[in-house]
């Protein structure tokens, strides 16, 4: 086990004081803990984000193992629980809160109102649209980093981040949808998740370069 002092010193060795302060006091919610969300949460936790709120109603299934950050021992466990435990193994001092909930228009405010940055990491297009619409119309300052288009083995170079407006960022290739003939592959989904996590860290540190 490492001590908080050792962990804190490791952050100080990497970040200047201002960057470290911004990252360790940041609060980010991740909506959906599948191929995108499980990777985003791990990226942000490794970077040192102080508080993650993990949201997913589902339990780990064997069909998740091709691209999501779970293993055989996690099957049948809530994704919130499995992912929290995984993160604590490399960042024991992070604050993680969870909601085992299906996100709907009715509960968006309850679940997300405390978080200034939200990652949309759902799999269904309708749920993505619902969350983005709710966040942009119901909240005033909250920023949302969403993803659309990462299926198949199309060029990784067409996965990009676009700033739609001051509060809405969209990562992905915007067109390649999951289909029976176009499955999701771990590296291309993780690439999109990496875009989202990088964008979140840019927002947190005020170093936006999109």
């Amino acid at each position: 086990m490492i001590t908080f002092k050792e962990y804190d010193a490791s952050l100080s060795s990497r970040y200047d004081k201002d960057t470290k302060n911004k990252i360790t006091t940041a609060k980010v919610a991740v909506a959906g803990l599948g191929g995108l969300g499980s990777n985003i949460a791990i990226f942000l936790a490794r970077a040192g984000v102080g508080h993650l709120h993990l949201v997913d109603f589902d339990k780990v299934d064997i069909t998740n193992l091709n691209r999501q950050q779970y293993d055989i021992n996690d099957i049948g466990t809530f994704k919130t629980t499995a992912l929290s435990e995984k993160i604590k193994r490399f960042n024991p001092f992070i604050k993680i809160t969870t909601d085992n909930a299906m996100v709907t228009e009715e509960n968006v405010k309850d679940i997300f109102s405390s978080y200034p940055i939200i990652c949309e990491a759902f799999d269904k297009a309708e749920n993505k649209a619902m969350l983005v619409n709710c966040i942009l119309s119901e909240f005033r300052d909250t920023k949302i980093v969403s993803a659309s288009g990462m299926a198949g083995l199309y060029s990784p170079n067409i996965i990009i981040t676009r700033k739609i407006n001051d509060r809405f960022y969209l990562c992905g290739d915007t067109k390649n949808e999951i289909d029976t003939n176009i499955p999701l592959f771990a590296p291309r989904v993780a690439l999109c998740a990496a875009h989202q996590a990088t964008t979140v860290l840019q927002i947190i540190t005020g170093k936006e370069e999109i």
């Binding site: 799999d123 983005v132 288009g149 990462m150 999951i178 989904v189």
Partner: peptide, 30 residues
């Protein structure tokens, strides 16, 4: 023109000449 339009308001939202409309489409996968 930079203002998000709620889904429930699509039908009653009238358009004016010169309006700048951005439509972001989502596709499945995640």
């Amino acid at each position: 023109n930079g203002v998000i339009i709620k889904k429930a308001d699509y039908e009653k939202t009238t358009l004016n000449d010169g309006d700048k409309i951005e439509v972001v489409s989502f596709v499945g996968g995640g």
